[in-house]
Design a binder for these strands. Structure first.
Lengths: 139, 139
DNA sequence: GTGATTGCAAATCTTTTGCACTAAA
DNA sequence: TTTAGTGCAAAAGATTTGCAATCAC
């Protein structure tokens, strides 16, 4: 057991603490899976399988709780592209998506790669919370 | 009973026939509700309640069948904005939406009011099926 | 300890399906 | 007739909830 193998735990642990989330075994395990590498898009079921495979025993109920808690504190962002399933994105900054409806694959588009040069005024009494551009693609 | 009150039936009937859909009592009733006035956004449950209230007895199963059949033949368009519910839009031309996440209200944005002046190339081997812009608004 | 978190199983909600019945052509 | 369409009730899938057991602090 060496220092460097511990670092990811420490970083993730601090990150959870910083968000006010108690770093439980489940949350730590899921956070390590989610934030280990580059940006990811997961579904509850997908993350659950992955967690089980990675020896991070978690119930599906806890997966849902965790995904929503992470989303609330800004560690994740929900992407609505498919009426039958919720996707969660580890990339939380503004950006957009390609969505392959056949395969269900979601691909990030950097915010800078989409330029919206005109948008109508929002309805009276409302303001923009966020603009989602979904480029639906087919093979 | 006069001629003019019959016209909507005839028009709707012809429209269904033109799409290759047998004009059954249920489909006619639903089509009249959907295409009576200006553009509308409905959910299965909402349309069902409305149909019952308008003395167009239809089962929820038939509502779902009908919404999907209408979508297949291009009379409706599905709008994915909310992970928990499917919306169907009687406006089938290209356009975008404001979506009030609190109230669930969908508002059309004419295609011409949104100008996307830059979009990245689609992934290798794919092409654009459609681009959806969802402006999520809050009160 | 004590309050937050978890897991399980049951409940809920939306949508789909199987199949006998009904209606359109 | 003959085949498409409908309704019902059951099934399926995703997500949520209630509650007792467990864990972090």
């Amino acid at each position: 057991m060496n220092i460097s193998s511990q670092r990811p735990y420490r970083e993730v642990l601090d990150r959870l603490r910083a968000c006010g989330l108690r770093p439980t075994r489940q949350r730590l395990g899921l956070a390590r899976l989610l934030f280990a590498g580059s940006d990811r898009h997961v579904t509850a079921e997908g993350l659950h399988s992955e967690a089980i495979a990675a020896d991070v025993p978690v119930s599906l109920a806890t997966i849902y709780n965790t995904l929503h808690q992470f989303t609330e504190v800004g560690l994740l962002r929900e992407v609505v592209v498919d009426a039958t399933r919720s996707y969660f994105d580890t990339h939380t900054a503004d950006h957009h998506h390609f969505f392959n409806e056949k395969s269900g694959l979601l691909i990030d588009i950097p915010d800078a790669d989409v330029v919206i040069s005109q948008l109508p005024p929002t309805p009276e009494g409302t303001k923009i919370h966020r603009v989602d551009v979904i480029v639906r693609i087919v093979d």
